[in-house]
Each structure stands twice: as C-alpha cells, then as structure tokens.
Simulated assay, not measured.
Amino acid sequence: MKTKALLFMVLCLCCMGSVQAQQDGRIPAKGFALDAPDGKFRTYEFTRHALGDNDILIETLYAGICHSDIHTVHADWGMPVYPLVPGHEIAGRVVAVGKDVTKFKVGDLAGVGCLVNSCRHCDECETGDEQNCTGRVLTYASKDYHHGNELTQGGYSDNIVISEDFAIRIPDGADLKRVAPLLCAGITTYSPIDFSRVKSGDKTAVAGFGGLGHLAVKYMVRRGAEVTVFDVTDDKRQTALDMGAVRYVNINRPEEMEGLEKQFDFLISTVPVGYDMSSYLKMVRCGGEMAVVGLPSFKEMPSIDANTLIHIEHCKLYGSLIGGIRKTQEMLDYSVSNGIYPDVELIEADCAAIDEAYRNVQQGKVQFRYVIDMSTMK
C-alpha cells in the first residue's frame, strides 16, 4: 500500500465522525498468514488496535524472514494460535502519530524488532532489558494485555501500530532494504559480543554460519578479533574468508576439528538445530566465554551434563536473548555508521515466494537472509 493512501486512510479513521470510527478506530491491515503448522501462506485481512496517544503507525516497507518465524509457525516451540502473521524484523516509514508522540514525526523511518511492549516497571524494564520482562509483549503470537489480550500479528503485513517507546529510529542514509534483519539477527549477535567485551586480537569463533552467524562474523571482524567459523558444509567457506574470518571449519571433516581445544577467548553459537554443545565448549579457553543464541526446536534441544561442565574448568557459558530497546538502538546506529549489514536476497510479497523462502531457509540454501519487499504486495 502506498504511503499517501495509507495516511489518508488513517486520517479518515481518526477524524471522520462515523459511529464505527468513534467506537474503536481500529486500523485495517493486510498480510500473509498461516492457519496450521503444516499449512501454506495465504493473504489475510485483519485489524490492528487504534492509534493511541503515544503510538505511531508504520507502513511496512521491508520484512525479514527469521528462522524463529519458521520455528514458531511450525509449532516447534509449542502450539501458537492461528491464523498467525509472523515477522519481527520490520523496516518502514511513519505515516501517522498519536498526539503525545515526541520521538517520531510523519515521514521518519522506523523499525520494529521482537518486542512491542512490556510492563515498563519491573527491574528488567528499568535497566533497559525489556526482553527479560515477564510481562513482555512479542511482535507476533503474543497476548497484548495492553490492548484487551488480543493476539499480536507480525511484520509480513502492510502496517503495524506500536508505542513510540518500542520503535527504533532508523538513521539517515541507512540501506533500508538491509536494515530489517538487524532488528533481530543484528541485536541477537551484537548484544553478547558487546557483553563479553570482544576486542582487537581476541581469538573468537562462530558456530553456525547463517543469518545470525554471518552478522556475528562482521561485528567481531570490525572489532579486530580473529574469527573462526564452524559450519556443516564447504559451500560457505570462501564467503566466510571474504568476510574476514581467518579460518573456516567444516565440522563434518574430522581432520579440520583437530587441535581446537581451549583455543578461543569467546565463542558464540547461533546453531538453530540440534548439536553437541559440549564439543564447542571444550574449545573455549580457561576464563573464556561461550554465548548461546541459537534456539532449536524443543525436540532437538541440545543439553550439557554436569560432568562435562566440571571438567571444562572456569569456562563461562551463558545464554542471550535479543536485547532491550536502548541496546537495539545502539546496535543499529553502530551498524549503519560502520556499514555492517546482513547479506540479503529480496523476494516479492507473495504467498508462493514466502513458502519457497521457508523451504530454502530450512535447507540452508540462502546466503544469508530473505527480506520481503512489501511494496510488491498486490
């Protein structure tokens, strides 16, 4: 939907004197939804909650496809409520603002990641870690208790309404078609790299060279670290080296796995399927850290036993979940100023194209992130 048409529609909803508009003022939306774990995408018309005083309405220009979208809609992490519009990597343009909005104006570029609200008052929210709030509201497949417990719908759609506090400012000059994946894949990798204070000269490693992993490589190379990449095929070897990795290891080649114990100061695992976690932890030196950000399906969830932990002395293992709003803004500003973007392939806003993209992601055929060009929606 074109910006002018969408803005006109919103103005009509907000200003016209019809009984329906006065009662709810809900915003019409159109997107792509699934009706079952084994279903295919279909076009889906629905409505979003009315524009509140502190809300902005964003016209979606680009929507990234995350592996988490696939896990969610396929019920790998529990059965969601259908119909379900996925998507938590959203880049677009502000087309309407509530009367008390100060952070954005009409025409600004804005992004939305994995969060659209939280309780605002707990310790986690107060310290800028809204992702850890027990009252967080996710961008899709989540009950929005701020708006009558309605189910949130995501970014594979022509618009989204969100509190200005949870929208991310997209810097001027950003490569907009490549911004959307930063709002999930970018913050998911940037946050632990920053937390562990990865610095120049550190020996680091990335397990899984996909949508998350290739951004982890770019961030750590930019910091001056020596980066080793682990993946399951040779297909991406040259690409990893071209990105600045010093070594690429195909874990299915035993000879390439030799001599790697206690080699790394920091290792980040982005693997979204079942794997042997202990094999990577053994590669971290004493006093080093391993961050786990990849989340496989429940049936493939890796684990590690106490015996292994005890014999890997003084190695720190921790998990990391995306990042709060302040950290996400920091990540996006840093990424744009340093020219760090995901490698993307644009696809049309079409059901068949999205279905095919899902199949390719599951088969590891994309390098490295699909992004839906929502301007092509019919």
Rank of each mutant, 00 (worst) to 15 (best):
G39E: 06
Q22L: 11
D350V: 04
G224Y: 03
P37F: 01
R253M: 04
M301G: 12
D202Q: 03
A141D: 11
I170E: 09
E226V: 10
Y358E: 10
Y190D: 04
C125Y: 07
V116G: 04
A207V: 12
Y156W: 10
M16C: 14
G111L: 08
D129W: 02
G364N: 08
G98M: 13
Q23D: 07
S142A: 15
R93C: 11
V94I: 10
K143G: 02
G154Q: 02
D172G: 09
Q367T: 13
L182A: 11
I372K: 08
L295H: 15
V94Q: 00
H314R: 12
N117T: 04
S335R: 09
V249N: 11
L13G: 09
D172N: 13
T228M: 07
T72Y: 03
V246E: 03
L321R: 07
L182M: 14
H71P: 08
G135L: 13
K203H: 05
N159Q: 09
L267T: 10
T60Q: 06
S335I: 08
L321E: 06
E124V: 01
I354L: 10
A167F: 04
V273N: 07
C14E: 14
V292P: 03
H49E: 07
R197H: 13
V179Y: 02
P302K: 08
D235S: 12
E124A: 05
E255P: 08
Y275F: 15
C66M: 10
K4Y: 13
L138F: 10
D355N: 14
Q23F: 08
E300R: 14
V366C: 13
Y318A: 15
I354H: 01
